[in-house]
Design a protein around this nucleic acid. Structure first.
Length: 555
RNA sequence: GCGCCUGUAGCUCAGCUGGAUAGAGCAACGGACUUCUAAUCCGUAGGCCGGGGGUUCGAAUCCCUCCAGGCGCGCCA
């Protein structure tokens, strides 16, 4: 509808120019918007105001000139007016909205799809938690946001790949190995101090017990280095399995699990260091190798190989991101926790240093999650022994509620996740509010089938013409807005737009439901209304699918 | 000290990338179930959009500057 109005305005402006009512046909970019107040019409344009400069005319004069030349052969405009500082307001005839319903039926699961991406290959890397402990709610937010962004981009015509980067190399894994080994020793009755930097969580005990059971005492007879390495590999493997299970419970799967260790084993890290040494972007100082990230906007240079010969995490990350781009992705998106923000400039620098376009690299920073129970903070943090894992949260509140809560906030704002609220089945917890629409409509359909033998939901022109209550038109207007909502959501990587869209659509439906009956004594009217609510159900289902939330038939 | 993010109703959050009288939900108060699911709806009340400057026809939105909170500033990851 916005497009139709835009075309009408443009051709009116052109006609106005052709007949000398406007000074130029170089029209400034203008918007078609939905006024907040219904008194201002269904759609409005700021054309006259933004054109004041180029036309060198008063906005109201421009608006008058445009309105004089409006051509509306399909009679979609009931009336138009000039208002405020120069808005042109359009009041759309109710019948003009009806074709949107047919479009929803025709496109069905594909309603809202677009070719925004044009098949562009895009990679979304998310979660990527180190396999040194269970996932916590913070990871959950990144997981759900990344998954939803991937789904939305895919729906918008991108060729999307989901990837998890496994940090299965380096010091943290070594620390994990030590943690498990020391616990093994303690369980076997050997008095050892448990270092502070080791992982304190109970899961380390469990892993130690498992290892002892499988390997018996042999572990303590070999050299410590060997034992640590064994424990590290064993524990990381087990933890990764649990992480996969947790993500599976959330409904998340990846196209690829990329191993950091593999990056080293295949020589890619060394190769990248050599590559940048040849380009004079890596130099030696104080026995360490430094990358000239400061030449690309970072505040200082960064170490890639330490004085003791060990590579840093940054070294493998340079290799990893270069590898991603070398694999042919036109855009790579990293979903990180906000505590990693300081890391962005150096990765971006490495990408520019490799001669790539920095705009190919996008970071979505999800802000922190505060876990609460009835308003009281719940302890989190891997190193403190006690913490609530993501799995525990999902088991307690359910996958749908968990996902929806993560997605009803802009990723840029901190999130209070209250376990008690997440469990409530009230409007405080809107996932049920949205799902309830789907269940209610499903229920009406069932009843229509059972009591009226209505097998197929369809409507002829007469039935559709009976859809004209203000609440009904309101709903169709909202349905018509779905495709642009999805596109905006994709362009800005903002899944929350869809969540809020669905809540608004749900509100419009619930209000309608309470005011009007769908199953009436008039068969034609009933057919029209069934047609309308089935369209609502399709859009609710499509939207929830993008968010990874189920659409129940009954509740 | 420097950098990133945030500051909107008592609480949790939106605000269509600069538009008209700033919106939802919860909490409060008053109503609506003999009818398609009350996990719902209708109404009332609630605001210096953190403060102050600027940019222009027009600012919650853009710029500057303070204030407050969160998170970062290692040859850690």
């Amino acid at each position: 509808m916005k497009d139709k109005i835009r075309r009408i305005v443009l051709s009116a402006a052109q006609a106005a120019y052709d007949q000398g009512d406007l000074a130029t046909d170089q029209f400034a970019p203008f918007q078609i918007t939905e006024p907040k107040a219904s008194a201002h019409g269904d759609l409005a344009t700021n054309f006259a105001m933004v054109s004041a400069g180029v036309q060198k005319m008063a906005p109201k004069k421009i608006a008058e000139a445009v309105l004089r030349h409006i051509q509306d052969p399909d009679h979609i405009i009931a009336r138009s007016e000039i208002a405020g500082p120069g808005f042109i307001n359009f009041f759309i005839t109710p019948a003009a909205w009806h074709p949107s319903l047919a479009e929803i039926f025709q496109k069905d699961h594909h309603y809202g799809e677009s070719n925004l991406g044009g098949g562009q290959r895009i990679q979304v890397e998310f979660v990527s938690a180190n396999p040194t402990g269970p996932l916590h709610v913070g990871h959950g937010r990144g997981a759900v946001v990344g998954d939803a962004v991937a789904a939305i981009l895919s729906f918008c015509g991108y060729d999307v790949h989901r990837e998890y980067y496994i940090n299965d190399s380096g010091r943290q894994i070594h620390t994990l190995g030590r943690s498990v080994l020391y616990r093994c020793m303690q369980i076997s009755g050997k008095p050892v101090d448990f270092p502070e930097e080791c992982y304190q969580g109970d899961y380390v005990y469990d892993l130690a017990k498992e290892i002892l059971k499988e390997k018996g005492g042999r572990l303590t007879t070999v050299a410590e280095d060997e034992a640590v390495a064994y424990c590290a590999e064993y524990a990381a493997g087990k933890i990764l399995t649990v992480i996969r299970q947790d993500l599976d419970v959330l409904g998340i799967s990846f196209d690829n699990w990329f191993s950091e260790k593999h990056l080293y084993d295949s020589g890619k890290v060394d190769a990248v260091i050599q590559y940048f040494q040849q380009k004079n972007l890596i130099y030696e100082n104080d026995g360490a190798l430094w990358f000239k990230t400061s030449a690309f906007g970072d505040e200082k240079d960064r170490v890639v190989v330490r004085g003791n010969g060990q590579t840093t995490y940054f070294a493998s990350d340079i290799a990893y991101h270069k590898d991603k781009l070398d694999r042919g992705f036109e855009k790579i998106i990293d979903v990180w926790g906000a505590d990693h923000h300081g890391y962005i400039p150096r990765i971006r620098a490495s990408i520019q240093a490799a001669g790539k376009d920095e705009n190919q690299f996008v970071v979505i920073l999800t802000q922190l999650v505060n876990l609460l129970r009835a308003g009281e903070p719940v302890a989190m943090g891997k190193r403190s022994g006690q913490f609530v894992t993501l799995r525990e949260v999902i088991d307690e509140v359910g996958r749908d509620a968990a996902r929806f809560i993560f997605l009803t906030r802009h990723y840029d704002s901190p999130l209070d996740f209250d376990l008690e609220i997440a469990k409530q089945q009230t409007n405080d917890n809107p996932v049920y509010y949205v799902q309830y629409v789907h269940a209610r409509i499903s229920s009406i359909i069932k009843k229509a089938k059972a009591e009226r033998a209505i097998e197929e939901i369809n409507a002829d022109d007469k039935s559709i013409s009976l859809i004209r209550e203000p609440e009904e038109i309101q709903i169709i207007k909202h349905l018509a807005r779905y495709p642009e909502t999805v596109i905006m959501s994709a362009e800005f990587f903002e899944p929350h737009r869809i969540a809020f869209y669905l809540m608004e659509l749900a509100a419009a439906f619930h209000a309608y439901y309470n005011k009007h009956r769908v199953l009436t004594d008039d068969p034609a009217l009933t057919a029209g209304r069934l047609y309308l609510i089935v369209a609502v159900r399709k859009v609710i289902r499509n939207g929830l699918a993008l968010l990874g939330v189920s659409a129940p038939e009954s509740m």
